[in-house]
Amino acid sequence: MAETKLVAVDVQNLLEEATKLKSGGYRLVQMCSTRVKDGNELTYSFGKGYDLLHLRFTVGDSTQVESISHIFPPAYFYENEIHDLFGVPIEFMTVDFKGNLYRTAEKTPFKGGDSQ
């Protein structure tokens, strides 16, 4: 049976943690953002076999998050999505669509939800 673990990390240690997971044989399962008050809660999920490990950290609206796409190549797709829909500033992505991955009429549509 699959096991799930949730690990809270700090945004500064993100790259370090991701590198550890990479050398531990993990693969990227998904990255997701949840809107919380004045910020976003990011969940990066990694899998090894059927087990799942989430890295969880919360960032403020203007906190720069460093991309893990140099460590996990497919991450750029998720990061662009989070950047486009939630407006989380993510730096150093291997492929940066600069807000044009999703062609939405309104920029960062998922961001303004809680203020309304």
């Binding site: 044009n100 999703y102 062609r103 939405t104 549509p109 998922f110």
Partner: peptide, 13 residues
């Protein structure tokens, strides 16, 4: 180089 986003409906929102 891929590019998507033509049929985004915002169902998650």
């Amino acid at each position: 180089i891929p590019s998507i986003g033509f049929v985004h409906r915002g169902l998650e929102k």
